[in-house]
Structure formats: structure tokens, C-alpha cells
Write a protein that binds this DNA or RNA. Sequence first.
DNA 1: CGTTCAACCTTGTGATACAGTAGGTTTATC
DNA 2: GATAAACCTACTGTATCACAAGGTTGAACG
Lengths: 135, 135
Amino acid sequence: MMISTRGRYALRVMLDLAMDETGSYVPLDRIARREGISEKYLESILAVLSRAGLVQALRGKGGGYKLSRAPEEYPIGEVLRLTEKTLAPVSCLEAGMDCPQAAECPTFPLWQGLDKVIDEYLMAHTLQDLLPKKV
Amino acid sequence: MMISTRGRYALRVMLDLAMDETGSYVPLDRIARREGISEKYLESILAVLSRAGLVQALRGKGGGYKLSRAPEEYPIGEVLRLTEKTLAPVSCLEAGMDCPQAAECPTFPLWQGLDKVIDEYLMAHTLQDLLPKKV
DNA sequence: CGTTCAACCTTGTGATACAGTAGGTTTATC
DNA sequence: GATAAACCTACTGTATCACAAGGTTGAACG
């Protein structure tokens, strides 16, 4: 499968933070408990999200994590691209790949098309779309 | 990535056979040489395709493999589904999974949608679409 | 100033899948 | 009966995943 636990956790954590009304920092252990995810593993995921600026982190007492933007400003694809090694459906399309036989490979256009379909889908939805609507 | 060398090889082999005009059986070593794929590894892939009836195999002298249908009757998705462990983008959607929390999981519909998009794409194209058109 | 809380950083580990290898067995054809 | 080919079983090195352990730095509060 293409999207591992890592990426799925990342998405759930972002949603968790988005649902936190208060706007103050939420500590790691509370997120982990709410989502039922291993603290230590979650830490490594949040580190990435924090370094990339998707969440703001604050150390020390009263610290934790919170979103740095509004939920509708996070395309799902952006979250996943950070936490997954790649979103490409085949290795031919990965970052520094540039297969030299791509030009004459009869299957290459197929993979490009698949990649496009996936990317468009993931970039078309934002965190906001996944939040339970309160009516 | 979601589609491994295994599935890509399978597709290339099917195309290789589709381009073989003669209609007679093509031995493994010739396919392997033409496609630049390890003979032994390819063998395990063709075994699956043969057992599933996508190709016909003949043993002994003059034997080999050939397609059992016309190229336009092979959706790409069918070939890949056989050779890949799964085409599901997340483990939540895999065969005997049925995550018990699926109902309340806010991300579940997203994965269902992604799965649908991928499946539709792969089932909409056939081997025929990938054959170089002779004008 | 020192204690506490919490993020940050480095390292290790068991399980699994992937890609390929090795060698023998059966089945057609000539 | 020799040969060509598919078929079958088992092994191996590499990499990634999902986590665990333990220590370090930094912010707040009494």
C-alpha cells in the first residue's frame, strides 16, 4: 500500500488539533492518548510537521503543538507528502529518479496519468473537508 | 510507492506478448532478454499470470507463453491486482481488514474515495491503450 | 534559582516485504 | 532418449516500518 501508518497518523493528528477549540498548545501525550497512538512514534511525526511549519511547537511548561493555519488551508496532499517517503505510485516517478528509458517505455505515460489522478485528488481536499460538520 | 517492480514487470511482459505478432508460444528466456528482466524472477511472475489464466503456457520443446485474450480485453488493473499484494492505498482497505473503527474514523471516507479514483483509472485502461499505435 | 513540564535529538530493534538466486522436477517435442 | 521448456521449493541480502529507550534543551512558575 502506498500510504503507511505514519501518514495516516499525521493526518489524524492534524485533525485532532483542528478539532481542539481552545487555540492553545496541546501537549504530545494528550494527543497520543486521544488518538491511541504510541507517544514516541507520534513524536517523530510531529517533529517533521513542526520543522515544516505545519504546526507550531512550544517547549516547556504549558507547551505543546497547535495548527499554524486554518484547517481549510491544509491540502491533505501537503500533510501526506511530508510524512510519507513518497506519494508516487511507482519508483520510476520518485524524486531523483529520471529513468533514462522513460522516453521509449510504453508504460511510463500510464504511471504519469495515475500519479496525476492521485495528486489531484489529494490536493483537492483539505483538513476542513474531513472535520465533522456541526449543524 | 504502491506498485512494485513485480507489477511493473508483469505489465511489461503482457505488453511484450501483445506485441509478438506470430501468435505462437514465446519462451521465458526470450521475454526476459527482450525486457532486460532477471529470468528467475520473471518466472515467478509468469507463474501467477499463468495460474490465473491471463496467459497460456505450454511446456516442453517449442513451448512458452502467449496471451489468452485480445489486448483490449485486459484491463491494467486486472494484471496489477494479481501481481501486487494489494492495490489499496491504505491498509485500512485491504482484504480481510474491516477496521472496526471505520464508522467513526474521520479519515476513512477519504481513503475510500482515493481507492475508487485509483481503481477507476486502472480499470479504464487496457493493454491495447499502451501498445504503440502503428499508423 | 531551582523544579517541573514538555519538546527535541540520537540510537537500537523486531518484523515484514521486495528483488533476486539456486537447484531440482516434470512435461512436451523431435 | 536427448533436449527444451515450464514448474516448484527454498534460501538470502537489503530496506523500510513501527516502535522503544534514554538523554538534552528550553520555557514557565513557585
